[in-house]
């Protein structure tokens, strides 16, 4: 990972530098005009955030049953990233809601469920920081339950009466004029955010590794 870290970082930076120009090329959406362009980043952050949450759940489960230290590091790094991407997604979502629904917070099913997931992972970090000895296992249990709510968030818009766009909105893009380029930009932004997730995850895991090394050296010095 350390060898390809720098090239990956450069590619991610290049994608992010180009994305505003690419988004600018998309045609205006018929009712929301300029504001619709929030969507490209909004969707991409949630994809990255959902990936982080699911990876965190799997890594937490693996840590619980196998006791693998690496899995624990992945879990804590992805939990932090999930909170950050989730916060960005919630903020861009409220901006969107202000324009599309006329209110900052509509109390809609998916938005509420996304906030719940955000709270679960903030709880994860709180337990991790203030739980005292043995908090790794506590937070791992939290991670597994947090990931279990992710499918509910995804499906909530299809089950409940709500104003958030349904999951079918993506596949309908191909049939509208200018939809193909919009679809391409969505994929482009998603790729950029996924790469960002990978790069930050690698850096965060390295930090955790160094921290563990430092702790070990302290203990050796004390003996």
């Amino acid at each position: 990972m350390r060898k390809i870290f720098l090239p990956l970082l450069v590619i991610t930076a290049a994608l992010f530098a180009y994305s505003p120009y690419y988004i600018n090329q998309a045609p205006y959406e018929s009712t929301m005009l300029l504001v619709q362009k929030i969507f490209y980043y909004h969707f991409a952050t949630w994809m990255a955030g959902a990936t982080a949450v699911i990876v965190c759940g799997v890594a937490s489960g693996y840590y619980l049953f196998k006791g693998s230290v690496v899995a624990d590091r992945v879990a804590v790094a992805t939990a932090e990233l999930g909170v950050i991407f989730g916060a960005f997604g919630l903020i861009s979502g409220t901006l969107w809601g202000r324009k599309a629904w006329g209110t900052w917070w509509a109390g809609d099913a998916r938005v509420s469920m996304a906030l719940v997931a955000e709270l679960i992972f903030i709880g994860y970090l709180l337990v991790r920081k203030y739980g005292g000895p043995g908090s790794e296992k506590l937070s791992a249990a939290m991670g597994v339950f947090g990931a279990a709510t992710a499918p509910f968030i995804y499906k909530s818009v299809d089950w409940w009466r709500t104003i958030h766009p349904k999951t079918s909105v993506m596949s309908s893009l191909n049939d509208t004029p200018g939809g193909v380029i919009m679809w391409n930009i969505v994929l482009f932004c998603t790729l950029a955010f996924m790469l960002l997730l990978t790069v930050v995850l690698a850096a965060r895991m390295r930090l955790e590794e160094l921290r563990a090394d430092l702790d070990r050296l302290y203990l050796e010095a004390e003996d």
């Binding site: 469920m113 719940v116 679960i120 337990v127 709510t149």
Partner: peptide, 8 residues
């Protein structure tokens, strides 16, 4: 731990 998970 309990409240966020049981909100749903």
């Amino acid at each position: 731990l309990l409240y966020p998970i049981t909100i749903p």
